[in-house]
């Protein structure tokens, strides 16, 4: 059984100008010890998907099964033991720490809430975590504004791991950091995964980071997963035209002044195109794409693509 199994998940918001289909029929699994990457542009719903899985946003339809337990609609109270095992790391290291609490309070509170040990045991656990993420213990009595972005992200990681979770949803954990700091945080996350046997759902817009850091990749476009493959397969044979466009758009030192791979803007998720939702920007679009919404079709044991022209690739 998968650690996490999401099926037919929808998250819709009622907006002033119609329903916003942020997540629109998504199914995915995360196995024990696996890092699954979720790639897409802003507004594709990847962040909402992460928050729906952690039940920070209410799903509209579908099911979320975590460790064989259906958590789609259970109450906040019954969710509490689940939260211990299902944690989240946020993008903005400046916004995700309460500016009015010192680091010790920030790290101790989860232990208090979940009734972990006595005062001395909690202090010990906090110190162990702060050591593990590479910050000095003197940091504990300081406040978030005294730290740099990379250091704050370390604190955010310590907070997410202090309850000893099994699955961590990482929502763009390195996008707000300087390049020279990104590698530090990615290395920290990967060593933590190894030591603690974690699984990650790693949400990112940065393909290079996803390529390095994940075992399996899901490409998301306008609320839907359009391609899913294990890491090596995806890079060897990307089949969805959107996946290929994303890859080509990453600046590449070996190419000089290359034209943009696709034109046009991401349509609004309030006004999703008919048929294949990528067809207005797709270089391969034909009549069928304008009318028929393609389903995910298997192209090998680990590879699924939602495109009428995936064979043409």
């Amino acid at each position: 059984m998968s650690l996490l199994a999401v099926s037919d998940l929808h998250t819709h918001y009622a907006g002033p100008s119609g329903t916003l289909r942020a997540v629109d029929d998504v199914s995915l699994t995360v196995e024990d010890g696996e890092t699954v990457g979720l790639v897409g542009e802003s507004g594709c719903g990847k962040s909402t998907l992460g928050k729906t899985i952690t039940r920070l946003v209410a799903p509209t339809k579908g099911s979320i099964v975590f460790k064989q337990e259906d958590i789609t609609r259970i109450s906040e109270r019954s969710l509490r033991p689940v939260r211990r095992r299902l944690q989240m790391i946020f993008q903005d290291p400046f916004g995700s720490l309460n500016p009015r609490q010192n680091i010790r309070d920030i790290l101790t509170a989860p232990l208090v809430v979940h009734g972990y040990g006595n005062r001395a045991e909690r202090a010990k656990r906090v110190e162990a975590l702060i050591d593990r993420v590479g910050l000095p213990r003197t940091a504990l009595s300081r406040y978030p504004h005294e730290f740099s972005g990379g250091q704050r992200q370390r604190i955010g990681i310590a907070r997410a791991l202090i309850l000893d979770p099994e699955l961590v949803v990482c929502d763009e954990p390195v996008s707000a950091l300087d390049l020279s700091i990104q590698a530090q945080i990615l290395n920290l996350l990967s060593s933590m995964k190894k030591d603690l046997g974690l699984s990650y759902l790693f949400i990112s817009h940065d393909l290079s980071v996803v390529r390095y850091f994940t075992d399996r990749v899901l490409v998301m476009y306008l609320g839907r997963i359009v391609e899913s493959a294990d890491n090596r397969t995806l890079w060897a044979q990307p089949k969805h035209p959107y996946t290929r466009a994303l890859m080509d758009a990453v600046p590449d030192p070996s190419r000089r002044r290359q034209a943009a791979p696709i034109s046009g803007d991401l349509p609004s998720p309030q006004n999703i195109p008919s048929g294949c939702r990528f067809h207005p920007r797709c270089p391969l679009a034909t009549d069928i794409c304008r009318t028929v919404d393609p389903a995910l079709t298997s192209f090998g044991p680990t590879h699924q693509v939602a495109c009428h022209h995936a064979d043409a690739a």
Binding site: Q87, F90, H114, G156
Partner: peptide
């Protein structure tokens, strides 16, 4: 809507704690 409140919810904090402490 701030991330640290979302983080507090994701850590399973109760409403009273979030209101008063966060």
């Amino acid at each position: 809507e701030k991330d640290y409140v979302v983080a507090a919810r994701s850590l399973g904090y109760g409403h009273v704690r979030i209101i008063i402490r966060e």
